[in-house]
Design a protein around this nucleic acid. Structure first.
Lengths: 138, 138
DNA sequence: CATAAAACCTACAAATTATATAGAGTAAAT
DNA sequence: ATTTACTCTATATAATTTGTAGGTTTTATG
């Protein structure tokens, strides 16, 4: 399951996507529309900004806005940013690899091999689906 | 990511699958081979037994053994049993459905719709891959 | 029948992670 | 100068995961 953080990120991105032409949008506006704690959302939007998805403007009339095309934001990138690995095992993660402690020989671990296949299939979907797909469905 | 519980379950099932002809296998044997806490593994094997995957024998000479064919044990069933939902959102889960608190209208939520597609694709893989696939790779 | 072996069961403890909050700092508009 | 709103770091709280304790039941065997 996605963490709330990631789920909120998707809601926020979707909201910003829908209001692309309205300039900077307040954190408060998003947090109210989606019943998300203002402060919590603040952190999330900041992360999205640092990662290059959002721009922001301080002070009166400020807020956040999308700086990438929705179709250039695959679900996989948002999930990885906020939730970490997409793979089901650390020993199979492309971006967050770690060897399994309890595994003596990863090279001959059948679970490892199967989970690589699962990862590849999962990535196919999550890299193909983008924010644009979410927007098109609303 | 899978919890350790689920990962251990897969290791245990694989071990039991490989030793199908040897009768009942001790918890200790599995926990030692895979560096898993004995007591923790005890709980896991018990769950797998209650769910109908394993049989057991008490007392001296006792232990656990597979009572299902490896090809009849899809990854999805083990993951659901020990980790819960496979879907990325509660509002999209087939087995553990819950509405999203922050969502006013699920019917017109684009995230919901996209996640249904992701779920269906994910399930295709996890229902197709079975314990047999893990065993074949060792 | 006594003993030891090993699964069964319930409850709890410790550790980790996720969620949320606090409060001061910085930039911009008016 | 004042207000507004994002920025940053640190901390608090809650939930979940992981692991442990200790006793009970069943079975094999001498």
């Amino acid at each position: 399951m996605l963490s709330k953080k990631t789920k909120y990120a998707f809601h926020a991105l979707t909201y910003l996507g829908k209001n692309k032409d309205k300039g900077a949008i307040l954190i408060s506006e998003i947090s109210e529309k989606h019943n998300i704690s203002h402060k919590f959302l603040e952190n999330i939007l900041l992360e999205l900004k640092k990662a290059g998805f959002l721009g922001s403007k301080k002070g009166k009339g400020g807020g956040y806005y999308l700086i990438k095309e929705p179709k250039e934001i695959p679900l996989s990138r948002i999930i990885r940013l906020l939730d970490g690995p997409i793979a089901l095992l650390p020993c199979v993660s492309l971006n967050y690899y770690e060897p399994c402690e309890e595994c003596e020989n990863q090279a001959q671990c059948g679970l490892n091999k199967v989970m690589i296949e699962v990862r590849d299939e999962t990535l196919k979907i999550l890299e193909m689906k983008t924010l644009q797909d979410i927007l098109s469905n609303e």
